[in-house]
Nucleic acid binder design. Sequence first.
DNA 1: GTCGGCATTAGCGCATACGTTAATGGACGC
DNA 2: GCGTCCATTAACGTATGCGCTAATGCCGAC
Lengths: 235, 235
Amino acid sequence: MISLAGYHGTEDHGRPPRSSEAVYLKLKQAILDNHYPPGAQILESQIASEFEASRTPVRESFVRLQQEGLLEIVPRHGVRISALSPGDMREIYEVLMSLEPTAVELLVARRPDRVELSGLVRACDDMEKALAGPQPDLVAWAMADERFHMSLARLCGNKRLAAMILTVWDQAHRARMFTLSLRPLPLQSTAEHRAVVDAILAGDGERARDLYFAHRKRGGHELTTIIERHGIQRL
Amino acid sequence: MISLAGYHGTEDHGRPPRSSEAVYLKLKQAILDNHYPPGAQILESQIASEFEASRTPVRESFVRLQQEGLLEIVPRHGVRISALSPGDMREIYEVLMSLEPTAVELLVARRPDRVELSGLVRACDDMEKALAGPQPDLVAWAMADERFHMSLARLCGNKRLAAMILTVWDQAHRARMFTLSLRPLPLQSTAEHRAVVDAILAGDGERARDLYFAHRKRGGHELTTIIERHGIQRL
DNA sequence: GTCGGCATTAGCGCATACGTTAATGGACGC
DNA sequence: GCGTCCATTAACGTATGCGCTAATGCCGAC
């Protein structure tokens, strides 16, 4: 997880570390890392003792994570970690197909300098590196891919847009990790990222947006196909 | 405010009414109704006594409303009701220009029947009616406009997309109400809504999307112009 | 007169206590 | 043997208490 310090406004400013913030971050990470698998039921008191805090900060974290769609509060049964149905994946990809191309377009319109874009370029480099050797490192590739998309969201200059992208991206995180080994080597995906960066560097917003849209569409289609072929119902 | 029962998963299922839910709803309504003006500082204990609840449900509401961008928790100073800068308005309109046309396109792709679309048609009728008489009723127009956009979001079949539209729409609610009397009579806006509905009824997704995008773009431009001309810095 | 430091206290973050509800298991009746 | 009802208790939703932090105001010194 790469956090977007800012929009949801909960990063500290040198204040005493808040237990509720720590619980929130650790719990979120644990969910994304599949430490609590989808469908799992967890009790407030269980998390409270695991994280050595009282129920109050745990409840606060639950509320926040519920709004982010990572879990659902079920009265008397604690929380249920959200599982994504194929329909949810469709929703997420529809949202990303709408927001991410817009983010690219906004980024180009801002006329960013090469320094700002260095993160994107490096993420591309890392994706290529991860697939270059005789033993492709899929996890490294996925991390670079994530870095690429997070950077792009943050660079677009629209905090709300960035936060929305991050939210659904987080929701889909586990599913992406799970399907990583089921899909063909992401060589084309990597090339598409590079093409987007090139268009951004060239200042061609329309081309960048269209490339990005195509990338997202193909990726979504690929994932949908995998989910269907494997008959996956929840992830 | 028109609530999207569902996505954020806090509607009740015949359970005992929860105080925290009541506080959340009333507080949100109060903010949208400008009962607490932007920039206002409110203390937990103040809301608690006003709403006759303890601090716990108030805190929970604060957390939720902060994530929705309606207020900001400022330690030791309670919460500050969010004020929108011109930059915020730009962000909101960029998001809506991305999401709403997508929603329209998705709606048309679902091939909705006339019954499903009746809410949209009625909202259009009401907008026209509100402007028809010798004394145009701007508030009635704004309510119908809001109903139109909320219906569209909900009809698109993508809960996440709908929730996102609702969130930013809520953020901009006060600003829209405030500028209502500063802008020209929304005759063109009303006509544009009608055109979008016609395109939806005709099943022409691409036209509907383009019309909607143009509508949103023009509306955003109009609002931006007003804000600039009046030198408004916070609303 | 102004600035700085200290005391006071407001307000919060967290822990915990309390009452309520619903889930569970056992016992009894059919 | 099975179903139903009641008792038990687990878990939550809310209230409240506690200790800590920082904001505020006052007083004294320069």
